[in-house]
Design a protein around this nucleic acid. Structure first.
Lengths: 167, 167
DNA sequence: CACGGGCTGAGATCGAGTCTCAACAGTCCC
DNA sequence: GGGACTGTTGAGACTCGATCTCAGCCCGTG
């Protein structure tokens, strides 16, 4: 529930504009829904949310918009351990996410230092590394405080984050 | 199926044994199939392979066996860049995978250096990182030689990883 | 030998994501 | 101002990977 009720200008929408993509009403609606999500969300979450609020967006359009956002690096795709997929809104710059497996919140983490690790692995294996993905999961400060280590109360399945980027 | 003279013994099967799990014929069959795979494979690859060779394994059993193997860390689950899922057989020790996107071969890579990166991220974000996973995609030395950088892997022979999947 | 628990297979079912296609909207050109 | 064009949309059918159900079977145990 981020900035709501304001003019329809979100970073997301600005970015669409800048990317030379048509900013249509359905896309705006999806962008708004994305901006309101806390933590990660699935495509179906958006479809349901849109339906609940009678927004003018069809299911296919939600998927298309998410594809578009993903292509523009405005949202990042998560791979849940259960095989499903989810998304998180984020900056366009390449980075990784640390996902709280209790509340689902996701925080950006720069990948400082990983480049060297990747380079090292490339050298050792002889592979030409085209992209990498780093997945981190654990507990955010709040949840860690609420559930001292060891409490298996986490209801949300451990989400694994993946930011695949061409290197 | 090759070695028919004697009891089939694979590291996989030994591990099942040690884990106190029943080593049944279907599980043995799945283990054998897994051991025969080159590179990564999907659950469906195994199902098809089993069917092709008339092995006594049902679809559900393949999935169950893979779950079991995954739980025992005998097999690692990969999230392919295209959102699909695959598996690779591997050691139980923690490590990472470098996957060739042309031939599908997967090589283990020690995670030297990543621990520091993860620690740094944990410190910066305040998260308690429970686990991490790093996956690297690129070209193995052979494929890189065959397809010099820049050449789009138009004719991917075996496993396709980013484009279409054989139907 | 009888019993009980775990494992199995076949098929039904679920559900995420894709594809098709006609209709529509916004933009550009004349 | 009008017409044409291109890109977008929505509804729903469809695909296909994955899971669930459930009765039957097998193995180890007492």
């Amino acid at each position: 529930m981020a900035a709501r009720g304001g003019i329809d200008r979100f970073p997301l929408i600005d970015a669409l504009d800048q990317a030379g993509v048509h900013v249509t009403e359905p896309r705006r609606a999806v962008a708004r829904l994305v901006a309101e999500q806390v933590g990660y969300f699935t495509a179906n979450d958006l479809v349901r949310a849109a339906g609940r609020r009678r927004l003018p967006v069809g299911r296919a359009t939600v998927f298309r918009a998410l594809d578009l956002f993903t292509a523009l690096n405005l949202v990042e795709r998560l791979d849940l351990p259960d095989g499903g997929h989810a998304y998180v809104a984020c900056d366009a710059a390449h980075h990784h996410h640390v996902v709280c497996s209790a509340c689902g919140r996701s925080v950006d983490a720069s990948d400082s230092g990983i480049a060297e690790v990747v380079a090292g692995i490339a050298e050792r294996t002889g592979f030409t590394i085209a992209s990498h993905r780093l997945e981190l999961f654990g507990l955010c400060p709040e949840c860690a405080r609420r559930e001292p280590a060891g409490t298996p109360a986490a209801t949300i399945p451990t989400a694994t984050m993946s930011a695949t980027r061409p290197s």
